[in-house]
Nucleic acid binder design. Structure first.
Lengths: 157, 157
DNA sequence: CACAATTCAATTGCCCACAACTAAATGGCC
DNA sequence: GGCCATTTAGTTGTGGGCAATTGAATTGTG
């Protein structure tokens, strides 16, 4: 029973190794592996590290804003922030100005963790084998791709 | 540990918008959104679609081989394959030659689904706004990156 | 002021990813 | 043949991502 494995050129469209998204996905998960090793010392997962980056950069901000920076919704952020709070890195407090909103801010411990995180990007860069210019070029390409895909998603909806 | 560019530029290293991995992650999730819309008609999620691609290309094969093609382990594949089996697209059967192994093969329905899947890559390509050469170049770049990251992960371990 | 629409966080439910472990089968080796 | 390391799927537990829903607070409008 041989269900004719792709023989004709037209079938190449469905070949796994031609799918850009697979390469993207694989790269994303490969990064996950590297970050897992490097962030273990800090007690952070990669998405938690991203949240900390935003907080280190912007100081306190509501969950909504955090989500906009990271393209994540409350369904992802709420449990993640609880774990960061349990770890003692952030506090969550209802805004007094708008009680629908929850302000997320760093604890002293969360602020202090930044000192140990500054070396992470350099170690990641080393793991990629790329130089800064190559990284920047790739990043711009990917951001362009993300923009196009987001527009396309809206069009379909 | 040489002193990198002095005090203030050091801050830039931790800026979210400079992290290649964030761009990668965002692009990967943006793809997820597009695939979710396009694959809804086929009743597949994106990882399930990847599994079907491999099966369409190679015919039946054991879970182990499937995992090697997709860089996924049994912890991910086992429940996923159960869902595909429930959906009537694949069958799982213990190999008679090696009873540790489980052969995954397409049902007639699974084979038939291929006809409706052939248009998916073209629609995805359209959503990216890239042409084939650009896609190929980006894919090669990403595969190169994945290779470097995988090596780095092994080094750390 | 009253009421409808909107905004926001949280929850639920489903699926994916991965580490760690279990259990069974295989194959090599004495 | 009997023992043991290896191979292979499967299970469990933790965490992330997202759609859909809930419920409370706010804002807009008549």
């Amino acid at each position: 029973m041989t269900t004719t494995p792709a023989a004709s050129p037209t079938n190449d469209w469905l070949r796994l190794d031609q799918q850009i998204c697979f390469s993207l996905n694989a790269a994303s998960r490969a990064f996950g592996g590297v970050y897992r090793v490097i962030l273990k010392d800090l007690g952070l997962t990669y998405p938690q590290y991203l949240v900390m980056l935003v907080l280190w950069e912007h100081g306190e901000l509501p969950v909504k804003k955090l989500g906009e920076h990271l393209r994540l919704d409350s369904g992802t952020l709420s449990p993640l922030l609880k774990r960061l709070e349990t770890a003692g890195l952030v506090r969550r407090e209802r805004s007094v100005r708008d009680e629908r909103s929850v302000e997320v801010r760093l604890t002293d411990e969360g602020v202090a963790l930044r000192e140990r995180a500054v070396e992470v990007p350099r170690r990641i860069l080393g793991a990629t084998g790329f130089d800064l210019d190559e990284i920047r070029a790739l990043r711009e390409r990917l951001d362009q791709l993300t923009g196009a895909l987001d527009s396309a998603t809206l069009d379909e909806a």
